[in-house]
Amino acid sequence: MASKAVSYLDRGILPIRILFGALFLYTSLWHGMHGAKFLQSIRDYQIAPGSLVPWSGFLFIALEAGVGIALVFGYFVRPVAIAAAVLLSVFTIAMVSAIVRGLDIACGCGLGDTQVGWLDVARDVLLIAVALLIAWRTGKERVPQVQTA
């Protein structure tokens, strides 16, 4: 039963990987297009020193774009998926820290840009799980076998 589930999972890992990469591509594009807003969000978190905010924002966008491209096109999938999980973990820690400090700030995620809350944290945790799943099952994808007589 379990092996059957894993088998189905392995068949679905390719579209999952592409969708996951596309999500990163979309957010990097959104952050790139709304640079000032994104930097303001980083400032609002009050974690990075003011002078580092522009370059850390640029680095985040470059990393997001790199992860997105690599996952969509299938380059270095396992290390890139792990990098995506690390990147998402950084975002998650920042969000938890903002919530704990009572900061009522915009998420800055590029996905609706809502006030940061536990729902965003839950979404990021889910995405981390997806990234780890991609890293785990990469190389084990199965394509539907063509039955031959």
């Binding site: 790139g32 709304h34 930097l39 774009a65 491209i69």
Partner: peptide
């Protein structure tokens, strides 16, 4: 393209 777009939009800050 994405990195250039980001660099262009953030040029003032960077």
């Amino acid at each position: 393209a994405i990195v250039s777009l980001a660099a262009y939009n953030l040029r003032g800050e960077l």
